[in-house]
């Protein structure tokens, strides 16, 4: 069963623990500028929104890559960048409609979320469960349950 990173933006406080966990796992240092997940602050609306790769089934980045450096991890469903194959041409960064694959000037390669091999650090680091790693087929389950709970089809005992 595959899982997906699922974001519940209304729970985000903007603390950036996800960015630090991501950069630490990937770079060995705390460095949000190299994080694969970014938190955006829509200040005047009082909203924070974490955003990262959604791992498209039919991935634009993967199709655009001229050297087949982006491959599917069959276990996790993540589209992963093979660093030793990537030539840093950045065509994928143009192809991705969501902007979630980016060039790293320090390495000359592109970076994107790889779901940490199936145990994403950002979800573990989030103190408010704004980022969760859940059943890919049922990312709406909690919301369904919430609405289900509000649905009253029982006969009115007082009637």
């Amino acid at each position: 069963m595959q899982k997906s990173l699922h974001i519940i933006a209304e729970k985000c406080t903007g603390c950036l623990q996800c960015e630090m966990a991501c950069s630490y796992d990937n770079e060995g240092v705390f460095n949000p500028s190299k994080s694969r997940i970014k938190v955006f602050n829509f200040h005047e609306q009082g909203r924070f929104v974490p955003y990262t790769c959604t791992q498209c089934a039919d991935a634009w980045c993967m199709k655009a890559c001229p050297v087949d450096a982006i491959v599917i991890n069959q276990q996790t469903g993540a589209k992963e960048v093979l660093e030793d194959v990537c030539v840093g041409c950045r065509v994928c960064t143009i192809a991705c409609p969501f902007g979630t694959i980016n060039f790293n000037t320090d390495t000359g390669k592109v970076i994107k979320c790889d779901l940490c091999g199936g145990d994403p650090e950002c979800a573990k680091a989030c103190p408010t469960q704004a980022i969760v790693y859940i059943d890919a087929d049922w990312t709406g389950l909690d919301r369904m349950k919430d609405w289900a709970g509000k649905t009253d089809t029982q006969p009115d005992a007082q009637a």
């Binding site: 406080t13 903007g14 603390c15 950036l16 623990q17 009082g46 909203r47 924070f48 103190p127």
Partner: peptide, 19 residues
């Protein structure tokens, strides 16, 4: 009060965002 806000790295989030 619109929402709460954390400073960098803060898992408490006492900051207030108001309108």
């Amino acid at each position: 009060l619109l929402t709460k806000q954390a400073c960098f790295g803060c898992t408490i989030a006492c900051g207030r965002i108001s309108q």
